[in-house]
C-alpha cells in the first residue's frame, strides 16, 4: 500500500511536470488525425482502406490486410517514439527523489530502499503506460469504428510495449541512482538505444572492427546482459501484423512471435534493477 502510494504520486508528478500532458495532447491529435483520415469499405468481398480518399494498397501484394498493415506501421513508429520521449519525460523522477531534503523524508519512512526505488520506477512506467494504453485504445477504437475490424492484437502489443518500456527504464534507474542527474540519465539512455541497435547487428557491423574472439564474446555478453529494445519492438509489431514493408510476399514475411527477446530482456532488466537497488542500499544521503 505504501509503495502503491509512492507509485501513484510518481505518476501524478510525471503528469504535472507537463511533458506527459504534452504527449497526451499529441496522442489525441494523432487519434483525431486517423479518425478524420481513415475510412474503410467492402468492395466485392474485399476490404478497402482509404486515407484522405486515396486507396491504401501496397503494390504487388495480394491478400494482405490493410488494417494490419497500417496498425503495424503505426505501432512500430509510435512505440519507438514513445520509448525515447517516455525516457525524456520520466528520467528526472528518480533523481528528484534523491535530492537533498527529499530523500531523507522518504528514507525515514517504513519502506525499504528497494521498495522506494521500484515504486518510483514503476510509477514512472505507469505514467507512460497510461499514455500508451490511452493512445492504443483510441487508435483501436477509430479503426474498429471506421473499418469494422477490431484488432485485439494491437491492444495486446500495446501492453507488451509497456513491458518494453519497463525494461528500458532499468537503464535509467541504474544511471539515476549512480549519477543523481536527470540530464545524464537521459543521455545514457539515448546512448544505450544506439548501442543496443548496434549490438543487434553486431555480427555484420561491430565484429569487423576487431577480429578477436574475446572481443566478439564480450559483445555477445553485452547483448545478452542488456534489454533488447528494438528486437522486442519488432516482435511486438509481429503481434499486430506481418512485416510486408519490403514488398516481399506476405507468405515470406516474418510473422512469428519470438518470446526469447522478452525473456532475456526481462532477466537483464532485473539485473540492472538489482544493481540499482544494491547501489541505492549502499549510499549515504
Amino acid at each position: 500500500m505504501k509503495a502503491l502510494s509512492l507509485s501513484l504520486l510518481t505518476i501524478r508528478e510525471a503528469i504535472l511536470k507537463g511533458t506527459l500532458l504534452f504527449y497526451f495532447i499529441v496522442g489525441n491529435l494523432i487519434i483525431l488525425f486517423f479518425a478524420a483520415a481513415v475510412s474503410g469499405s467492402m468492395e466485392s468481398g474485399t476490404l478497402t482502406i482509404t486515407m484522405f480518399g486515396s486507396q491504401l494498397t501496397p503494390r504487388g501484394l495480394e491478400g494482405f490486410n490493410p488494417v494490419e498493415f497500417l496498425l503495424r506501421q503505426l505501432f512500430q513508429s509510435a512505440s519507438s517514439a514513445i520509448m525515447l520521449f517516455g525516457i525524456f519525460a520520466t528520467a528526472g523522477l528518480i533523481p528528484s527523489m534523491l535530492e537533498k531534503g527529499t530523500v531523507e523524508l522518504y528514507l525515514s519512512k517504513p519502506l525499504s530502499r528497494s521498495s522506494l526505488l521500484l515504486a518510483r520506477s514503476f510509477g514512472a512506467c505507469g505514467g507512460i503506460g497510461a499514455n500508451i494504453l490511452y493512445f492504443a485504445v483510441g487508435i483501436w477504437a477509430v479503426f474498429g469504428i471506421k473499418t469494422g475490424i477490431w484488432h485485439g492484437n494491437f491492444l495486446l502489443a500495446s501492453v507488451v510495449a509497456i513491458f518494453i518500456f519497463l525494461c528500458y527504464y532499468s537503464v535509467v534507474a541504474l544511471t539515476a541512482v549512480i549519477t543523481r542527474s536527470t540530464a545524464f540519465s537521459i543521455m545514457i539512455a539515448f546512448v544505450f538505444t544506439l548501442f543496443s541497435s548496434a549490438l543487434e547487428v553486431r555480427q555484420t557491423t561491430l565484429y569487423v572492427w576487431w577480429e578477436n574472439a574475446f572481443f566478439h564474446r564480450f559483445l555477445d555478453s553485452l547483448y545478452y546482459a542488456t534489454p533488447r529494445i528494438s528486437r522486442m519492438i519488432d516482435q511486438a509489431a509481429n503481434l499486430v501484423g506481418k512485416d510486408i514493408t519490403t514488398r516481399v510476399l506476405a507468405e515470406q514475411a516474418s510473422a512469428g512471435f519470438d518470446i526469447l527477446p522478452f525473456v532475456y530482456s526481462f532477466l537483464s532488466a532485473s539485473l540492472l534493477y538489482a544493481l540499482a537497488i544494491v547501489y541505492f542500499f549502499r549510499q549515504d544521503y
Binding site: M1, S5, E13, T102, E104, L105
Partner: peptide, 28 residues
Amino acid sequence: IGYLPENHRYPSFLTAHQTLLHFGRLQG
C-alpha cells in the same frame, strides 16, 4: 518515529493537506 529533516523539500505541486495524506500513506 517522526522526523523533520533540515531543509526538507516536499512535492511542490501538492497542497498542505495532500502532502500530509501522501506522507501518512507512506507511513502506513
